[in-house]
Design a protein around this nucleic acid. Structure first.
Lengths: 147, 147
DNA sequence: TACTAAATGAAAAAGGTTTTCAGTTAGCAC
DNA sequence: GTGCTAACTGAAAACCTTTTTCATTTAGTA
């Protein structure tokens, strides 16, 4: 299942939040981008359609969307700023192009056995994990070879 | 192999950097902590022994240590600030207690097959990955149950 | 002991994120 | 539709973290 604008609005209403034009625009920007975006990038995009919008509103909306689990944070290799991307609702991970920042989601991480072993060896009760692969996508590889 | 103070100092000298009392103290603080520390936390600890030291010096030293690959960054679940921890020199990952922030390193992540499959399916040339497990260590679980 | 490149600390600058507050608005009751 | 209220917005200010600048000090070497 992929989140649509409608579903996200429904979830907001469910949570007691209001649907404002600003929020609609922000949600749209996130939904229609295939890259992860920083709050500043989202602001920039949203301003094209909604010039007066403040960066504060972006932050506030992102906070709510994250709280409701509708978006998720990213930790791109090296750089530790928080990025955001729309997410399919299942457990998933990211494969990130280090050059153009394209993100591909994948779900089958197969870490169950490793998790069980670690849990046994360390007596940790493991509740989750973060897995990201970084590399170069085909386009960027070709670009590099050509140049 | 685990980095000792001597080895780190050797690596610094190799890199053309000087060994100052401030750097010694910072390196010591990192080596002797089993938790990941923020620059501010390192500053606080280092100041006990070296009151006049500036936060800037921490940042500068951390930058060098990271450049030389002597420390590594962490991305603890949820929180996206950059943390640092001494590291065994091999490829490794972290298992982090979400309560007390204890970190356990592990090296055998076994992601080769997944990496090959992803690479094939997506035409990415994968160069690395980030894997972290989060959970509760035994102590914190017992604490929670008792309380 | 003297020299020089590198390092330090203080202060200022530069980001990014959060808080505050007065004014506006979505969603609901009537 | 009208009015009400809690929620939302934008601007400014406050906060924090990180980086830059610069004058002074120091490690390492000759």
């Amino acid at each position: 299942m992929v989140y649509t604008e409608k579903r996200i609005e429904h979830a907001l209403r469910q949570g007691g939040y209001k649907i404002t034009p600003q929020r609609r625009t922000i949600i749209n920007a996130i939904i229609h981008s295939h890259e992860h975006l920083t709050p500043a990038e989202i602001h920039e995009r949203v301003r094209r359609e909604h010039p007066g919008i403040g960066l504060v509103t972006i932050y506030r909306t992102l906070e709510i969307l994250a709280e409701l689990g509708l978006i998720c944070e990213m930790h791109a290799g090296g750089n530790c700023r928080s990025y955001l991307i729309r997410r399919p609702s299942e457990h998933h991970h990211h494969l990130i192009c280090s050059d153009c920042a394209t993100v591909i989601d994948f779900t089958d991480c197969d870490l169950g056995e490793l998790e069980r072993r670690l849990s046994k060896e360390t007596s940790f009760e493991i509740s989750g994990h973060l897995l990201e692969f970084v590399g170069l996508c085909r386009k960027c590889r070709e670009k590099t070879m050509a140049g």
